[in-house]
Write a protein that binds this DNA or RNA. Structure first.
Lengths: 142, 142
DNA sequence: GCATCTTAGTTCGTCAACGAACCTTTTGCA
DNA sequence: TGCAAAAGGTTCGTTGACGAACTAAGATGC
């Protein structure tokens, strides 16, 4: 009667943890030893969308604003991004890339491919599509 | 050319985070305000498998052993579990349930159903099966 | 024009999680 | 038999993440 398997949520969490470990090791391999997966998420987001406010960034990376402030501050300390007050609204701080992070754009592209590719290993294109569809439907339940 | 969507890993992480938030709110609702999702995972594992060593427990909940020690110690402090040295191997500490946690067994059953059920909302039985299958295949890539 | 409310960000205290170093007991092996 | 290696746990320092309380700037209403 008692199922030997934990629920889906547990499996989802496990997959996330393994993937994050993979991200962390890729970051280390690239020499970015003091960056965590979340820092990478910020950079990847900025590569795609240029400068963003902390508010917008926090939504993109799915983190609370206080966490985002701290993650960005670390990236600033390490020279990967910079913060500038918006001209239109003095409350808004825009986070933008630097020469240093722009130089790593390609690295992050490869990193993304490695990390996402590993999850999909052995999946046909249709299965990949199915998986993302089911995932996005599950996400809509929140 | 640049996809507007982040990769699957990001979606998986997002789903995990939302589900964990749900777990946290359910724990709060049940009056267990000082328990985190991981503490719940330990209790649920023990409900299913009786007493386990810290080693075995750490594998079941997918956490490192030092983390497991700390999570269990908190559960002991709060009276939910107890630790006893194994008779056969003095190195091994067996973690077992207490009257307090046994009294909450039903609560955790409901919690699990609520949390996992939410993910599956709008899913047919076949889709649920498909999702868990794809997920377990992805997990095997690690 | 001024007070109030809302919104963007920051600060701070707390906690789960980890890795590394460590202790203890058990196992392996020469 | 004895000693090195392995295995189970713990300790400790560090870090990402959070919520709550706060500041400052902008919007709203009277």
């Amino acid at each position: 009667m008692t199922p030997r398997t934990n629920g889906i949520v547990f499996s989802v969490a496990q997959l996330r943890d393994h993937a994050y470990e993979h991200v962390a090791s890729e970051l280390k391999r690239l020499g970015m030893t003091d960056l965590a997966p979340s820092h990478g998420a910020i950079l990847i987001t900025l590569y795609r969308e240029k400068a963003l406010s902390l508010k917008e960034l926090s939504i993109r990376i799915n983190k609370k604003k206080s966490s985002t402030t701290e993650l960005v501050d670390k990236l600033i300390r390490l020279g990967y991004v910079e913060k500038a007050t918006s001209a239109e609204d003095q409350r808004v701080k825009l986070v933008g890339l630097t020469a240093k992070s722009l130089a790593h754009k390609k690295d992050f592209k490869v990193l993304s491919e490695n990390v996402n590719g590993r999850v999909y290993k052995g999946f046909s294109i249709e299965e990949q599509q199915l998986f993302t569809d089911l995932l996005s439907r599950a996400l809509k339940n929140y």
